[in-house]
Amino acid sequence: MAQAREQDLRPWYLLSPALAAIALLVVVPMSFILVYSFYENIDLGLDRPAFQFGNWHELLTDSYYHVAIWKTLRLSVIVTVLAALMGYVPAYFIAFTRFHHKWLLLLLLIIPFWISFIIRTLSWIHIMGNEGVINALLLWLGVIDQPLHMMYNEFAVVVGFIHVFLPYMILNVYVSLEGIDRNLEPAARTLGCTPWQAFLEVTLPLSLPGLAAGCLLVFVLTAGSYVTPLILGGPDDFLFGNLIYDAVMSELNWPMGATLSFTLLVLLGLVVVVYSRFMRLNQLTKAFG
């Protein structure tokens, strides 16, 4: 009896390397971000340990930072909504098609994850740039005689984000559509629903967990990035992540970089917390099953 009650330590041995790595490389550094946000920046790359609220004061009072937060929020919402609108229909199609080679459609959804992010992003320069497909075609057709300027603006950034994050959305929605009982929609139909009603009242509500998981992923991934605006955006198209990049990499202002990083962590953490109040976090992991 005594032996049975004694805890089995084997799982902890197996877990310890991974947990140690996470503690050392994630948990501890996150607390250092908080500590550093109270440090004082003296000069380029030079700071002094202190406990003062100068960085936080600057963040809360300087409208430059507020604009960046607002821009990030707005852009992330736009990207998320458009990705949901674009992604739901193909997910529905894959889930309910009678096409024999459904695996092919699913494989095509996975392949974008294997293609380099930076190549996929810069490929839009070949589509919308001055020497891109659209301009070349319109010039050749004689519709225009000067290339249209479609690049290096917010539109290009939004398109770039959607292009990269759309597979996450489709995959998550697909997983939850796939789990729906196939008899439910016909049942609704025999009870007198139109196909559209059956979709709105049966299928759509049941697929909401997947849609929500997709939206959360797209929102958080967009709000946390800084590379896409640097490649596809103009000088005014910066996100909160770009401020962090500038503070740390250009101005070498580590305390401010820490303050901004902690802010981004808390803001996006709040989004995750709100989400987990309504949905279970493990919905996110289902797409990998």
């Binding site: 996150m30 971000i33 946390g224 800084y226 992540g241 962090i244 740390v248 990083s261 962590l265």
Partner: peptide
């Protein structure tokens, strides 16, 4: 967010 992880 990866940016935060990197800075941390």
């Amino acid at each position: 967010p990866e940016t935060v992880l990197a800075v941390g």
